[in-house]
Design a protein around this nucleic acid. Structure first.
Length: 219
DNA sequence: CCCTGATTCGC
DNA sequence: GCGAATCAGG
């Protein structure tokens, strides 16, 4: 497998998107093992795994099962999710040294939003309606009637009014494209930053790239 | 059995 | 560095 910048970028994008390793592999026409292996070597954040191999040492054919479980209970290791939350928390504290890299994704997105605002939107607003049309094409099963009569979807919230506003804002606001441009950690790295398709992390252009194989596969 | 992700280790 | 083989939980 030749890991070009393009494939690595797409691996990162799909990985960030939360697709399963097998799914990423299918889209990149490689095995899930390749995906996991590469992701591991790239240092991409671990996903919630069904497995916990606390002992990184080789286990002899599962003979030492009991010992392993005892070790796990004793140590009480932190899950990847917990670690991630801790990192985010640290990054959000201004008092700690602020390196651009470990900043959580959302923070970077906010930067992009602000940058975009200062530059001014170049894309025509009419494109959004096009994107909506595309989006609705892909979800033909839901009629407007069904959408109306959907009571269970409302999330239980402590502050209902504010949350409602937030949801509206999130819905109305054009999300920015998370397609990575350049190499993370290097100076010129950035995200695409154009308006993303509704419900998708990419703009129309990059969504075409990101989902092209998925469409081919499902059609 | 199917799915999942992580690790190991020969290449 | 790569990824098939393997392990292991749901």
């Amino acid at each position: 497998m030749e890991w070009t910048e393009e494939t690595i970028a797409r691996l990162r994008a799909l990985w960030d998107e939360g697709l399963s390793t097998a799914e990423i592999g299918r889209q990149l026409s490689i095995t899930k093992n390749a995906v996991v292996g590469k992701a591991h070597r790239l240092g991409l954040p671990s996903r919630p795994s069904p497995i916990r191999r606390s002992s990184t040492k080789t286990v002899e054919k599962g003979v030492e099962k009991e010992k392993k479980e005892q070790l796990i209970e004793g140590k009480g290791e932190a899950s990847p999710i917990q670690v991630k939350e801790e990192l985010s928390h640290q990054a959000s504290q201004p008092e700690k040294k602020q390196v651009p890299e470990p900043k959580p994704l959302d923070a970077r997105k906010e930067e992009l939003v602000m940058a975009e605002a200062s530059v001014g939107l170049k894309e025509k607003p009419s494109k959004i309606s096009d994107a909506v049309a595309v989006e609705e094409e892909k979800k033909p099963t839901r009629t407007s009637v069904e959408a109306k009569a959907e009571p269970k979807k409302s999330p239980p919230a402590p502050r209902q009014k504010k949350q409602k506003d937030d949801v509206i804002n999130l819905t109305k606001r054009a999300a920015t494209c998370c397609w990575p441009i350049g190499d993370p950690g290097t100076k010129g790295f950035r995200f695409c930053g154009k308006e993303a398709l509704p419900g998708k992390p990419y703009c129309f252009e990059h969504a075409q790239i990101a989902y092209v194989k998925l469409r081919e596969r499902s059609s």
